[in-house]
Design a protein around this nucleic acid. Sequence first.
DNA 1: CTCTGTGCAAAACTTTTGCATAGCC
DNA 2: GGCTATGCAAAAGTTTTGCACAGAG
Lengths: 136, 136
Amino acid sequence: MNNTKQRTLIYETVQGSYAHPTADDVFRAVRRDLPNISLGTVYRNLNVLTELGKIRKISVPGQPDHFDRQGEWHDHMVCERCGKMIDITLRCTPPLAEQLAIQSGLEVTGYSLVAQCICPACAEEKEDQPMGQAAV
Amino acid sequence: MNNTKQRTLIYETVQGSYAHPTADDVFRAVRRDLPNISLGTVYRNLNVLTELGKIRKISVPGQPDHFDRQGEWHDHMVCERCGKMIDITLRCTPPLAEQLAIQSGLEVTGYSLVAQCICPACAEEKEDQPMGQAAV
DNA sequence: CTCTGTGCAAAACTTTTGCATAGCC
DNA sequence: GGCTATGCAAAAGTTTTGCACAGAG
């Protein structure tokens, strides 16, 4: 696998961020350093890096896929008002993957847990008046 | 809300199935009874029914959304080889939604848990030879 | 030098939407 | 009759892909 500056930069961008960027977010970010990079290259590399397990892809209903740094395992919560994504390190005993494997009797190779929530900012807003969507 | 035969049939199709159909699956199924129904109508009604909580929408990475009957709460596993979706009634104590709320300190309004697995059929196949994707 | 990756553009695919008409209540 | 839903078709949005060229090893 070749180490191109595009691939390196895309990886560093995702791995260095806690903002759960979409492919387009990554595209706009790396374009600051590599103005000629194409969106296709970003998608291709995000997929390669996901495949290699170097970053994670998170699917959220009704939104484009998000990408996330690899680090300690964690799950995600999404504010149903503003769409903001929040990390949560859910501690279960036994661990969720184990419970899934035991209770299903199948080989579990991974899982994705995305909870909907009301984030603190939106919860506060509600107390004033029923407003529309806040900006992401 | 009007009870059109389209909406009724779409609802019954999803509610009567354990196959987790996609919008297109539903479209092809209802078209047998209503040959002139349009895909747009199917999407509109699936969204309306989801909004009303009468059916569920399940997002799976890299696949179009699936729809599922409402019944006892359950989570889902997807075979990473053949894409087949399997119901699992995961019992956690305390319940997952509660754990999420407690550990995050946020108001949790729902969650989606989709685990990747190797389904029994694909697990067996593997023992013979490394094969390509099976048909869904 | 060879093989992989890139940029560009077109295309694929899923899902939404505008509009005139049809159907429900 | 008024209001909602439908069918059709176009469009929007995300993601993939074919191809010629550039870059990495």
